[in-house]
Amino acid sequence: MTIRPPFAAPAAALALAAALWAAGPPPAAAEAGYPYDGVRVIETQKSYADLVAAFNQAVAAQERVFVVTRASATVGVRNRFGEEIPGNMVAGVYGPEFAKRMLEASIPAGIEAPIRFYLTEDPETGLATLTYRTPSAVFAPYDGAGLAEMAAELDAIFAEIATAATR
């Protein structure tokens, strides 16, 4: 008769699960179902440079929000490695009025600000795309009083920015 320790099989299963978890999901898994609910993807007939310029103008035309963060893989790769990659930039947009209201409604929701726009260039066509999650989708997991109303106001502002930038 063979006596096995009671946790041998579960321990092996846990080790396998840990190894699979460490390896992460298959690469395509992150894109399954994209674009997700609340994500707006607007393909344009503009070059990347023209979309960036139009986006900057569209945000500047708003009185309640501003570009408060900007990160560009294109610029970073060029500066660090001297290589050119297709246009790619994330711009965080928000305003102090909304920050105050958001934090009054929900401190945990603060991790979501600023809300991002993603500007990308198709390497084959040279045309640019503007992508963003609607503020309502961003703040949906939180239940602070007044947060949904504030997000709806931001939805309208973000839609105005997207429309102006992509037309």
Rank of each mutant, 00 (worst) to 15 (best):
A109Y: 11
Y94C: 06
T125K: 14
V93R: 07
A113Y: 00
E124G: 07
A152W: 08
D143T: 09
A9I: 13
A156W: 07
T69V: 12
Y118A: 08
G87T: 00
V59L: 02
N79Y: 09
A91M: 15
Y48M: 02
L130R: 04
V75I: 15
E97T: 15
P123D: 06
A145R: 08
G110P: 05
A30S: 08
G144Q: 01
V65S: 07
V77I: 15
V41A: 00
A12R: 03
A23I: 03
T125S: 15
I111Y: 03
F139L: 13
L127I: 07
T2N: 07
A22D: 00
D37L: 03
L127W: 05
A13S: 11
V67C: 02
A8K: 05
A23F: 08
R64K: 10
T125Q: 10
V93D: 09
E149C: 05
I3S: 07
F117A: 04
R116M: 01
V93F: 05
L20I: 12
A128N: 09
T120S: 02
P96T: 14
M1S: 14
Y34P: 02
R116H: 06
D143N: 09
T120P: 00
E31H: 04
E97M: 11
A148Q: 14
S72G: 06
L147P: 11
D122L: 12
A109V: 06
S106G: 01
V75F: 11
I111C: 07
Y94P: 00
T74C: 00
G146Y: 02
P141Q: 11
D50W: 02
L20Q: 08
G82F: 10
A91I: 06
P96I: 09
G110Q: 01
V138Y: 04
E63M: 04
P10T: 08
T69C: 05
A53L: 06
Y94N: 02
M1T: 11
A12W: 01
G146S: 02
M89K: 00
T129K: 01
G144E: 01
